[in-house]
């Protein structure tokens, strides 16, 4: 009891000392805080302000209050963009998660040339998105593209890839999967590397087979890392822009127009910056909501 009190007093003194230091350490953050205010906080606030105007670049500017938001919620083109984004995100989360988990389990085993194989595997993630998008565009060419030749070799009919409204989103997802599966793999591989070895030895002694060990030891211990990968992947998939813009610019027609592409076109093709700012605000809210939801899930996974 007495030692408890002594301990808590020491802890209180410790926090007090920390607070004293804290004031000085604040100076380290000042330059960054100024920059963050200028390029991050200011845009947030200013976007809110602009979203209350009917504001055309180089043209009229008129206060409309919540008018842009009202228009947005009745704009079927935006509604479709949201639906497409959800469809795209669903596919672009599930598939990389499956392949990434499989790849992480494979790379966790020792095999010859593992280092080289892993390096090649993570290259897509680091490559310049625009550059690889160009190569994909050439590969998707319906007559001369190498992908349709590959399909013909395995006896499948040629596909129109990004040139048809039906196949454009799954095709773009294919690029996204190619691009970002490595990150999922790395995040889960990091988790695998940090797992303790004792439970496996104990399970082996108790006569568990490989599947049982995976099911009852690896899966529960790995769950928090899988959730982190899921969070990061979901947010990245929602934000996808570069490859979609380079490959289709939202086409054919509006068949691949996601929220981000809709936003870009409103702002920098139609110069409708007031309306586009309202889109930013809504998009921002969607992302924050999803992030909060996923973080909450993570807490629950951790607790169990």
């Amino acid at each position: 009891m007495a030692s408890d009190i002594a301990l808590s007093q020491a802890a209180a003194a410790e926090t007090k000392r920390r607070r004293n230091y804290a004031r000085h350490y604040a100076w380290f953050v000042v330059p960054a805080a100024v920059v963050v205010m200028a390029v991050i906080i200011f845009p947030w606030v200013f976007t809110l302000y602009v979203s209350a105007f009917n504001w055309h670049l180089g043209g009229e500017r008129e206060w409309v209050g919540f008018g842009n938001y009202v228009q947005l919620f009745t704009d079927s083109r935006f509604g479709w963009a949201v639906a497409r984004t959800l469809f795209y995100t669903g596919l672009a989360v599930v598939l990389p998660m499956i392949f990434g988990l499989a790849a992480a389990l494979a790379f966790h085993r020792k095999f010859p040339l593992r280092g080289l194989a892993r390096t090649v595997f993570i290259l897509p993630m680091m490559a310049t998105p625009v550059a690889v998008a160009l190569v994909w565009t050439m590969m998707f060419h319906p007559q001369l593209g190498v992908l349709n030749w590959l399909l013909s070799q395995v006896g499948l009919p040629p596909s129109l890839w990004v040139y048809s409204a039906e196949t454009v989103i799954p095709t773009l997802v294919l690029v996204e999967v190619w691009h970002w599966t490595p990150l999922v793999m790395l995040l889960i591989l990091g988790g695998l590397a940090s797992l303790p070895t004792d439970p496996y030895e104990a399970a082996k002694i108790d006569g568990a087979n490989a599947w049982q060990a995976f099911r009852h030891i690896t899966m529960p211990l790995l769950a928090p890392f899988v959730v982190v990968a899921l969070i990061i992947r979901t947010i990245d998939a929602l934000k996808a822009f570069d490859t979609i813009y380079v490959i289709t610019q939202g086409g054919p027609g509006q068949a691949s127009e996601t929220i981000n592409i809709f936003l870009y076109l409103q702002a920098f093709a139609f110069y409708n910056v007031g309306y586009a700012s309202a889109v930013v605000v809504v998009f921002f809210a969607i992302i924050m909501l999803l992030a909060a939801l996923l973080l909450w899930t993570r807490q629950r996974v951790k607790a169990t």
Partner: peptide, 20 residues
């Protein structure tokens, strides 16, 4: 705050900065 800045789309900073 830094984390939020990391997860929001870059495109959403462009309109105000462009006007500025």
């Amino acid at each position: 705050l830094i984390l939020i800045a990391r997860i929001t789309p870059g495109l959403s900073y462009l309109i105000p900065l462009f006007l500025l």
